[in-house]
Computed example of a mutant assay.
Amino acid sequence: MTAYITGVGYSEYTRRPDADLTTSSILAQAGAEAIAEAGLTPGDIDGFGVASFTLRPDHAIDQAWRMGLSVKWLMDDANGGASAGSMLQHAVHAIDAGTARNILLVAGDLMAGDAFRSLVAEYNSATAHHLTPLPMSGPNALFAMLTQRQMEECGLRSEDYGRIAIAQREWAGLNPRAVYQEPLTMEQYLTAPVVADPLRRFDCVPPVSGGEAIVVSANPDGRAAVRVLSTRSSFNYDDQEGSGTATGVAEIATECWAEADIEPRDVGIVSVYDDYPAMVVAQLIDLGFVEKNHSVSDFISDRIASRSLPVNTSGGQLSAGQAGAAGGMHGLAETATQLLGRAGARQVEARYGVVTGYGMVLYRYGACATTTILEAVR
């Protein structure tokens, strides 16, 4: 692969957006910052991709026009937490084919008022027809059942999930963009209101408004950049017939490691999609970070809680917030920022990073997954 991430941009995450904020302005702000960081101008961008739930009725072409972009490659992706990885995969192919040289990928949403309630009630026909009438608002109950299964399979307790949430909050305390930065204690975690047993308040992502963007280029032109070593996607991994405790990452991880020619032990930063702590565990297992026959609880204590393995160094969505479809871009933007050496107080030493995307709850859990392996080029 010959594609590089040359710029990262952000639009501020907020729980209470200003009245004049729009989805279009969120995407434009993040995109403009990414273009500037890449050392480019809008005229240099010849490819554009968008992931958003609330941009409608507009599409990628409308947003490109509003941002003054004239491009040769265009993409809309509505696959939620897997959207950024999926767009990146297509962008890399476009660059390899010579279709474009500098592709801007943006993701974001305005989650204000009824936007979030409408999204979770009518996410797709399966949700609208089978879950909302129960009533079952959002995916919390589904992932509560998945968490129960994982607890039984892996011998985990609530405290184990609490250690993940607390560790990510510690990272968030170093991230000025995180919505929740104050320390979280185990007592606070365990005594928080139960949302859907065994999920408590701090197990569930807070919806926010905001966005992120990256520029994917054919050549870094001598600037600091992040090389895309491998990126793959998996859709309908088990046709919704499995337990959900293994994701589509399990299907593509081995191919990604082989293509990148590295192993999990070589990685210095990990960003896994964290709509719930159970999904952090599931994807780390699928990626091969937890060795077979090794205690998952011990892994959480020894590697995640200690932060010796940097996992979700932005604070993840659990502390930074979930900005709709930007949730899929969140980990990719953070890992690229880290590998570019621009993470400030939370900066880690890493040459390689791995990012996963996960999402689009079809009937019981996510049907889409992506895995991307990146390398710092300085």
Rank of each mutant, 00 (worst) to 15 (best):
I5A: 01
T6K: 02
T6W: 03
V8A: 00
G9F: 07
Y10M: 08
S11M: 02
E12Q: 11
R16A: 13
D18E: 08
A19R: 14
I26D: 04
A28N: 04
A30C: 05
A32Q: 14
I35W: 07
A36G: 09
G39L: 03
T41I: 01
D44W: 02
D44Q: 05
G47M: 09
F48D: 00
S52Y: 05
F53A: 13
W65V: 14
M67H: 05
L74F: 11
D76G: 08
A82L: 03
A82F: 05
S83P: 06
A84T: 05
G85S: 02
S86Q: 13
S86V: 07
A94T: 12
A94V: 09
I95M: 04
N102C: 11
D109Q: 00
A115N: 14
F116C: 01
S118I: 04
Y123L: 14
L131P: 01
T132M: 06
T132F: 07
T132A: 11
L134I: 06
P135I: 09
L142V: 11
Q148H: 10
E153G: 00
E153D: 12
L156D: 12
L156V: 12
R157Y: 12
S158P: 00
A165C: 12
I166G: 07
E170F: 09
N175K: 04
V179S: 03
Y180A: 11
T185L: 08
A192P: 03
P206F: 14
P206I: 15
P207W: 10
G211F: 09
E212I: 04
E212V: 14
I214F: 11
V215L: 01
P220C: 02
G222Y: 02
A224I: 07
L229C: 12
S233E: 10
S233D: 06
Y237Q: 10
D239K: 12
G242P: 00
G242A: 15
A246P: 00
E255S: 12
E255W: 03
A260S: 04
I262K: 00
E263K: 10
V270T: 13
Y273P: 03
Y273F: 14
D275W: 06
P277K: 05
A278V: 15
V281K: 04
V281G: 05
G288Y: 02
E291Q: 14
N293Q: 08
S295G: 07
D302E: 14
S308V: 15
V311P: 07
N312K: 08
G316I: 03
L318F: 13
A320R: 12
G324H: 09
G331C: 04
G331S: 07
L332D: 10
A333T: 05
A333P: 01
E334I: 05
T335S: 14
G341I: 12
A343N: 09
G344Y: 06
V348Y: 05
E349T: 15
E349Y: 07
R351P: 00
Y352H: 15
T356K: 00
T356R: 00
G357C: 04
G359I: 09
V361H: 02
L362H: 06
L362N: 10
L362D: 06
Y363G: 10
G366F: 06
A369S: 15
A369N: 13
A369K: 03
T372C: 10
R378I: 05
